[in-house]
Design a protein around this nucleic acid. Structure first.
Length: 465
RNA sequence: UCCCGCGUAGCUCAGUCGGUAGAGCAGCUGACUGUUAAUCAGCGGGCCGCUGGUUCGAGUCCAGCCGCGGGAGCCA
């Protein structure tokens, strides 16, 4: 049996690259079968695109296996491509043969009806076969490609930072531990765990960020980016947090905060434009079924400039807004979700970049401003999703870095020796940020829950499939 | 981790004042139709999350537990 002869549904209905009259073989899953005495219709989807292709069977009585082709069955359909007599599709296939390859009986959980996203999460092994999750997974692939395209075309090098890390000083949340020790029989010395006996002869964790290593590579290669999985063991139970997620972290040598913000804005707009221009049929689906305002929102964001305001200005605006917030606004406290949403959804109605945050609420590696009150940090906030990018200009001055760390109570410099070394020799200004890939996919598709943009999400109490 | 809500048929849900379990979809049977998640008629389908309590009687009220969802914090 030759499976290579098949024609993808996308070539027929999206690209319209198959001439009428061509004999085609379509391999895919039956979505619905409508049968009567004189004629039967079968919708087949092969995952290559959103749309199904319709097969028309003029003499259903000659196809006894048709009775066994229920929703979800894998079928091979051969026939001639013709212009459709009916409404709703341009082309259809006049079926000459139809074979049942893999049966799906009535217990198949995906029926031709709307299922709740909550139910579909429980059958994550099957949900890619639905319209919504087929579209989401196609979008993830297309956007991942767009990310590489964007950076490669601009001279950034794709680098691979370690997923296993020995330093728990990455400073971005709780870490998952990696060990080969026998947990029922942990070796101890003086009552403490003897990490010398563990696989790496030290404690080891899953990375929460590739940034620190990214900085090292940037000082050598110029502009770099990472794109890989990231792990946070936070007990976060929200629609926008996952324990395992994908992050893009560009890092530019010879760059300051303005350059960082320029890159962030240009990069996001590029991805939005790419989705609108290159993923039309899937985006049309999201615009119709997930969020009616989606396309318009993305188009207006691409056309407009992101608002850029200092943290201090943001606090002023929130104080003057007259809005009652659950968490009172005050210079020095971090912006709460309600504050971020007010800025993006009410004040500006578009993405907002807030920069120059108070030194006390940001990480030690961010470049200190001369007043020693603020650091060169920036967050990109978007309506609905919230923080989508967090970044900063890095502290390149060794003495200032160490003074900053001292003020933050970090006194053990030993784990940071290599981080200090690139400031000790040939230090230069550099900046970068982290973009949550899954949050971008949420924003672009309109999907409201991060568990529905990851094929197999990992969140507290859930690591199935 | 905290606050709130929910858990009933394969799925989506209703279930009044505490009185012996209901609809739509899917499936099955049949009819009909160039149909579009087709339509029409009929049929089958239940550990009401678990444990305990109140009561003559609990899907319904109470407590605990488990699970899920929404919001918050942490953050991308």
């Amino acid at each position: 049996m030759d499976y290579k002869v098949r024609t993808r549904v996308k070539q027929i209905v999206v690209d319209e690259a198959v001439p009428v009259g061509t004999d085609v073989t379509v391999l895919g899953l039956a979505r619905t079968v409508r049968r009567s005495k004189e004629v039967a219709f079968i919708m087949v989807n092969d995952g290559s695109c959103m749309q199904d292709v319709q097969g028309v069977i003029d003499n259903p009585d000659n196809y006894p296996e048709l009775e066994k082709i229920l929703t979800g069955a894998a079928v091979r359909m051969k026939g001639t491509l013709v212009e459709s007599q009916g409404k709703g599709q341009k082309f259809e296939i006049a079926v000459q043969s139809l074979d049942l390859i893999g049966e799906a009986d009535a217990t198949y959980p995906l029926q031709k009806k709307r299922h709740s996203f909550e139910f579909l999460r429980e059958i994550a092994h099957l949900r890619p076969r639905t319209n919504t999750f087929g579209a989401v997974n196609r979008m993830r692939s297309r956007l991942a490609y767009a990310i590489h395209k964007y950076y490669q075309e601009r001279g950034f090098f794709y680098i691979h930072t370690p997923i296993i890390t020995a330093s728990d000083c990455e400073g971005a949340g709780e870490l998952f531990r990696v060990t080969t020790l026998d947990l029922d029989n942990i070796p101890r010395v003086d009552g403490k765990i003897n990490w010398d006996e563990d696989f790496f002869a030290s404690e080891a964790f899953l990375t929460v960020s590739g940034q620190l290593e990214g900085e090292l590579l940037a000082t050598a290669l110029g502009d770099i980016y990472t794109f890989g999985p990231t792990f946070r063991a936070e007990n976060s139970n929200t629609a926008r947090h996952a324990s395992e997620f994908w992050m893009i972290e560009p890092e530019m040598a010879w760059a300051e905060l303005d350059d960082d913000m320029d890159l962030a804005e240009d990069f996001l707009k590029y991805l939005f434009r790419y989705a609108l221009e290159e993923c039309g049929d899937d985006m049309a689906f999201f615009g119709k079924w997930i969020d009616k305002e989606l396309i318009g929102t993305l188009e207006s964001v691409v056309a407009s400039d992101f608002e850029r305001i200092t943290y201090t200005k943001a606090i002023e605006l929130l104080e003057k807004s007259g809005q009652k917030f659950e968490y009172p606004v005050q210079w020095g406290v971090d912006l709460q979700t309600e504050h971020e949403r007010y800025l993006t959804e009410k004040t500006f109605k578009k993405p907002v970049i807030v920069y120059d945050y108070p030194l006390d609420i940001k990480a030690f590696y961010m470049r200190v401003n001369d007043d020693w009150k603020t650091v060169r940090a920036m967050d990109v906030l978007v309506p609905r999703v919230g923080e989508i990018i967090g970044g900063s200009q890095r502290e390149e001055r060794l003495d200032v870095l160490q003074e900053h760390m001292k003020r933050k109570g970090i006194t053990d410099y030993e784990p940071y020796s290599w981080y200090f070394d690139i400031r000790r020799w040939g230090s230069m200004p550099h900046a970068g940020f982290g973009l949550g890939f899954d949050r971008v996919v949420m924003y672009i598709t309109g999907m409201a829950n991060i568990r529905d943009v990851l094929p197999f999400p990992r969140v507290p109490r859930w690591a199935k499939f």
